[in-house]
């Protein structure tokens, strides 16, 4: 009945795919996780015209910044519970004991998390841009900056979550750790949008954002794997 020598081969690709599919299924079964950051993003942006001034000129001036800051806060919500359930249920331990490299599994989870929680933020940005009276020629630049910027925020935030997930009150520490690291992304993204508003080329800022994305794509999974290993210890 039990033959200890035969084994179905394990492929890294199928492991990657299975983690990705698992995350999508989980999000489908718990749609609150899917909806919450989006609703939060919408509400925060809507509060600004009410709180500051509904004057079109003011809105146009603060609009891109407001959308970006709201996106950062929405992603903080996503990041805060990224590994929590997996840690509590012992899935992280199971991943560490798998022969598939931990950074690959973490990469699959992050990619799925971006699709589930962040891609929607990018997609609804045009609606919010109209709400904030942002000129139509700026909207593509705004969306591009979020498309490149949100994965950086997610990956960097995930490192913070991996470091704090074992602590009881990790949330406070997480914001202290992660928010300062978001500053460069915010600076270059808003500078990109400003250039777009003035009808100037924004390839410089875009290149910097893309390089930040590549660096975080490459290093974040490795850093997260190491952090989780340490957290489990």
């Amino acid at each position: 009945m039990n033959n200890l020598s035969t084994s179905k081969p394990l492929s890294y690709w199928s492991a990657f795919k299975s983690i990705f599919i698992r995350e999508i299924k989980l999000a489908w079964q718990k749609p609150t996780q899917l909806v919450q950051p989006v609703v939060f993003f919408l509400i925060v942006v809507t509060l600004f015209p009410l709180g500051i001034s509904p004057a079109p000129k003011t809105l146009q001036m603060i609009g891109p910044g407001v959308i970006w800051i709201a996106a950062i806060l929405a992603i903080m919500l996503v990041v805060e519970r990224l590994f929590r359930q997996d840690y509590q249920e012992g899935t992280i331990e199971a991943w560490l004991l798998s022969t598939v490299p931990m950074s690959l599994l973490v990469g699959a989870k992050l990619l799925a998390a971006w699709f589930i929680s962040c891609s929607v933020l990018v997609l609804i940005t045009p609606v919010l841009a109209l709400l904030m009276n942002i000129e139509t020629h700026v909207i593509p630049a705004l969306m591009l900056s979020l498309l490149v910027g949100t994965p950086i925020l997610l990956f960097v935030g995930a490192i913070g979550n991996a470091l704090t997930v074992g602590l009881n009150q990790g949330g406070v520490l997480l914001s202290l750790l992660v928010l300062p690291l978001y500053i460069p992304v915010l600076i270059f993204a808003t500078s990109l949008i400003e250039a777009a508003t003035l009808n100037m080329s924004y390839t410089g800022q875009m290149s910097i954002l893309i390089s930040m994305l590549l660096v975080s794509c490459f290093f974040a999974p490795v850093a997260i794997a190491a952090a989780l290993k340490n957290t489990v210890n």
Partner: peptide, 9 residues
């Protein structure tokens, strides 16, 4: 999902 990460018969 467990069997995708672990050796099984």
């Amino acid at each position: 999902f467990w069997s995708a990460l672990n050796p099984t018969q």
